[in-house]
């Protein structure tokens, strides 16, 4: 025996649709922000490596300059340590950013599922087993909220870590200023040492700017539960 029926054209309310659209845009921003953080961090890592190289270079020049650059020698160790600290911090932040990316994927999947379940609920209005959807909807909502909670907590932690990277960057600028003073007393090595000071200063500025961009991107995507 054959029979045909059509579910009565259940109209999906414009509120539900505009809510879905807003959420879609938010998720898009999340993915873009997390990807841009990874790109900015990779640039910070490159700059930190440059500082490390500048420190080695400065050490060699200071060694050749001997007495004339005596004040410069301990500064090179500081520069090197700052570079090392920055690299270590960026490694840790990268690992965290990777977790954040995974959470973004999980959160996207859960939100997508929740939205679709909600839509199914609207479309299933009047269906014999409409109410059986409720446990799945609740489960999806709980999972989605848990993902959001974790996501926001990771964002907060990441913001703290990025704040920590700003410290060595600020210290590097102070060191660069001291380096210039010491370089002025290094006679024929003046130009070489001033170039080192310049490159540390520039690098510190680049790190500062990149980290600042990461922080703004992160602040932008903190989600509301």
């Amino acid at each position: 025996m054959l029979s045909v029926c059509i579910i009565e054209g259940s109209m999906v309310s414009s509120n539900v649709l505009s809510g879905l659209k807003m959420k879609k845009n938010q998720t898009k921003s999340q993915f873009v922000a997390v990807a841009s953080i990874a790109a900015e961090l990779s640039a910070v890592m490159d700059v930190a490596k440059e500082i490390s190289l500048a420190a080695a270079n400065a050490k060699a020049i200071a060694f050749r300059a001997g007495e004339k650059a005596k004040g410069f020698q301990p500064i090179t160790d500081f520069i090197n340590e700052l570079a090392k600290d920055t690299i270590e911090l960026v490694h840790a932040i990268n690992a965290h950013a990777l977790q954040l990316y995974q959470l973004t994927v999980d959160e996207y999947r859960m939100t997508e599922a929740f939205n679709k379940f909600e839509l199914a609920g609207v479309l299933a209005k009047g269906a014999t087993y409409e109410s059986s959807l409720r446990p799945a909807l609740l489960r999806a909502q709980q999972k989605m909220q848990e993902c959001l909670r974790q996501f926001n907590s990771h964002i907060a932690q990441l913001l703290d870590q990025l704040g920590e990277v700003m410290h060595p960057a600020r210290a590097a600028r102070v060191i660069a200023a001291n380096s210039r003073i010491e370089a002025s007393q290094a006679g024929e090595y003046l130009q070489s040492l001033q170039a080192v000071a310049e490159s540390v200063d520039n690098a510190a500025q680049v790190i500062h700017d990149n980290v600042q961009r990461c922080r703004s991107a992160l602040s932008f995507i903190t989600l509301t539960e």
Binding site: I7, K116, F117, L119, A120, L123, A127, Y129, S132, P135
Partner: peptide, 19 residues
Amino acid sequence: GTELFAPMLAAVLHHAPVE
């Protein structure tokens, strides 16, 4: 496909509960 999930789930609920 993904686009069809919600209407399909809603349609099945006329014949069977989710579980």
